[in-house]
């Protein structure tokens, strides 16, 4: 019957569309090479970071994890190779890429002279979330009642929490998190892990480094191993 055929074709094309949607590549590295102080950190790295991926970049100290994340974020230039966001070189569409990127480095970027709330409001505005409720976000990361405290008077973990509060607001497609769990207590780590999983489930892509074991379903986390090379 012709109508049956039509239906089957529709079903198949829908299936293909869903497949390609679930495998949509956000970020792709092509022949990425990084050399620092005459030492090759990684060479010819071809990786695809897809929608819904959680990628843990692992490796010993000095293997080049932070270098890789900084190159992916566009903060550092690779020795060779390119990075593509939505199939286009990031250097040709920096503004668009940055709109879709949240990068939290191993330094939280929190000013000690400003209060927790002022810090968060500034960081959010800088990335286009100017009208979000910073107080509520600070409460989400356990900094209720610390909004008006100067960041310089808060602990290292609390400073990191101020920066991490952006995770509760950001809908950037790609999250790059360098050691997000440093100085965070066990309960906080759990909350951040849940946030990472939620972001991946909502179609985001999370690239992170951490020396801790991730407490996430193992089928969701892929590991990218970098070796220490001499």
């Amino acid at each position: 019957m012709p109508w049956e055929n039509n239906n089957t074709i529709e079903f198949i094309s829908l299936f293909i569309a869903l497949q390609s949607l679930s495998a949509q590549i956000y970020l792709e590295t092509k022949q990425l090479t990084c050399i620092k102080q005459d030492r090759i950190l990684f060479e010819d790295l071809n990786v695809q970071f897809r929608r819904g991926d959680i990628i843990q970049v692992a490796g010993p100290n000095g293997a080049g994890k932070t270098s890789l994340l900084r190159i992916l974020a566009g903060l550092a230039q690779p020795y060779e190779g390119t990075i593509e966001f939505d199939q286009n070189n990031i250097n040709e569409q920096l503004e668009l890429y940055r709109q879709n990127l949240l990068y939290l480095g191993h330094l939280p970027g929190v000013k000690s002279e400003l209060t927790a709330q002022e810090n968060l409001e500034f960081q959010l505005s800088l990335h286009g979330y100017g009208n979000s409720d910073a107080e509520a976000l600070l409460a989400d990361v356990g900094l209720l009642a610390f909004e008006q405290s100067l960041a310089g008077q808060l602990s290292a973990g609390q400073n990191r929490r101020i920066a991490l509060a952006q995770l509760w607001q950001s809908n950037a497609k790609v999250w790059i998190l360098d050691e997000p769990f440093t100085a965070i207590d066990a309960k906080g780590v759990e909350a951040i892990e849940q946030k990472i999983l939620e972001h991946a489930n909502n179609g985001g892509c999370v690239i992170l480094t951490t020396h801790q074991e991730l407490n996430l379903p193992s089928n969701r986390v892929s590991r990218l191993e970098l070796d220490y090379r001499f």
């Binding site: 974020a73 903060l75 503004e95 480095g105 330094l107």
Partner: peptide, 18 residues
């Protein structure tokens, strides 16, 4: 200097604005 040392400079450089 202080923006460089506490990582705020990276955040400024990564903002989508000119």
């Amino acid at each position: 200097k202080s923006d460089y040392q506490d990582g705020a400079l990276e955040q400024l450089l990564l903002s989508p604005y000119p």
